[in-house]
Design a binder for these strands. Structure first.
Lengths: 120, 120
DNA sequence: AAAATTCATCGCAAAAATACGATAAAACTT
DNA sequence: AAGTTTTATCGTATTTTTGCGATGAATTTT
């Protein structure tokens, strides 16, 4: 018999909902950073007080509607804040979320045992 | 006239390919971390020298084939290394890539102007 | 009042990610 | 030799992401 897998059998549609806490939170932030356009947007914002939508459109190699969508995702993830300044909209970093994300990533990467620790 | 957009008109199919350098690199690492299962896998590995595929399967709320797929993505992103230990396969952190990612995220988050700097 | 600017949203298409079960390869056990 | 264990991969379905153009709302400019 070619064999199979025994206790591996699990039906678990939508496993993502099973995760909690910082695991979920970190993955959420990571997803927000998972596109180069969004990295660029955040980099831009982190170097200035604020930017208008148009500023990003000028600089990114994509249509205005697409840029708007990326801005929305960053907003939904909590990393940026929009402010109506008719007829324009300005964006800035959400410092609170930024610090939170910064800490989560730091703790995550710092958890790695050093090679010296491992060999002991 | 209801108006439209003038110089915004750009046709740029596949804008992702337009990005370069650390922007691309950081986005790539972020994408690898953009799923809670992969965060958990990496956390597990960062706390031990190595794990077998089966160890992850026992602990994650998803089918064995799905776990295998997530491991593949982490491997493709360079964050983990697989080693054949028949009949099993062990995985461990790729320390080099780990340090690289750690630095990229740190620099990224550290770039934010402090509120004091901003108000000046 | 008419035109222009700025931007989000809708509708849609294409691509990528997520997930499963089934299967097969490789090695180990009996 | 036959069966078991371990794991990656294939095929497929579903969902999510990415991207565009068109449109419309709000405001400013002419």
């Amino acid at each position: 018999m070619p064999g199979g897998y025994k206790f591996y059998r699990k039906k678990c549609f939508n496993p993502k909902k099973e995760f909690q806490g910082t695991t979920k939170e970190l993955a959420r932030f990571a997803k927000a950073l998972a596109h180069p356009a969004r990295i660029k947007i955040l980099r831009f914002l982190s170097h200035s007080d604020f930017c208008y939508t148009g500023d990003f459109v000028e600089v990114l190699p994509m249509a205005q509607s697409t840029v708007s969508q990326h801005l929305k995702e960053l907003k939904d993830a909590g990393l940026i804040i929009a402010r109506e300044q008719p007829p324009r909209v300005s964006y800035c970093i959400n410092h609170e979320a930024w610090q939170r994300a910064k800490m989560l990533f730091k703790d995550f990467f710092d958890a790695l045992k050093t090679e010296e620790e491992q060999s002991q």
